[in-house]
Amino acid sequence: MDIKEIMQPENLVYKKPELLNDKNMHYCPGCSHGVVHKLVSEVIADMKMEEKTIGVSPVGCAVFAYNYIDIDWEEAAHGRAPALASAIKRLWPDRLVFTYQGDGDLACIGTAETIHALNRGENITIIFINNAIYGMTGGQMAPTTLLGMKTATCPYGREVALHGYPLKITEVAAQLEGTCYVTRQSVHTVGAINKAKKALRKAFDNSMAGRGASLVEIVSTCNSGWKMSPEKANIWMTENMFPYYQLGDLKDTTVETK
């Protein structure tokens, strides 16, 4: 069969989601952000919510998320995205409102906003990219940096006596009455990406059904910050991040108990 014969519109099985525009993303080669951006774009389109979605971007690498996904956005001050989203959703209850935050934004400077928005049961989704490092500012220690992990501000490795423990904020979120769905996913393989997409869909559905707050953590790589190739970063994540940040649903009140 000739290649031209295959490359016909009716045979199209995958293309960049339409909501993701043609601008070159500023992310480093192999960065997990791009995959999550694609998933968010796909899920919004699947739900036909393109005209009714308001995203809130953070301070951190994803600050420019608004440049790539063609929906309406508000760009928040560092850590404050859940406060913005709380207000937006209450003022426009029929809109799909989500935040997109990194570990420094969500689990450090914005811990109060995160915990309280979740605990109030705001009908929003928080997408949490956890790559255990501050990417935008050049690879400093994050609240989720693993013990022993080297960063620009813990060059000899994170140690408890100096820096305390990596924060499992998603476990904390699962304890809050206001959350209906708390899950930890990743996007390093096709299988993981498909699961992450389903998790995002479930979270967005929860937001629209008024079930309470959803938190979707994506354990991610920062190959530049970790100083390895994208491929090696995926392997390192599997071997080091997953044992501490275990994948799977931590809480799902939408599942009927048998």
Partner: peptide, 18 residues
């Protein structure tokens, strides 16, 4: 199979199947 396109962080790959 679209695996390449799904994992591509930049959405660079379009896939056709017949």
């Amino acid at each position: 199979c679209t695996s390449c396109a799904i994992v591509c962080p930049d959405g660079c790959i379009t896939v056709y199947r017949k």
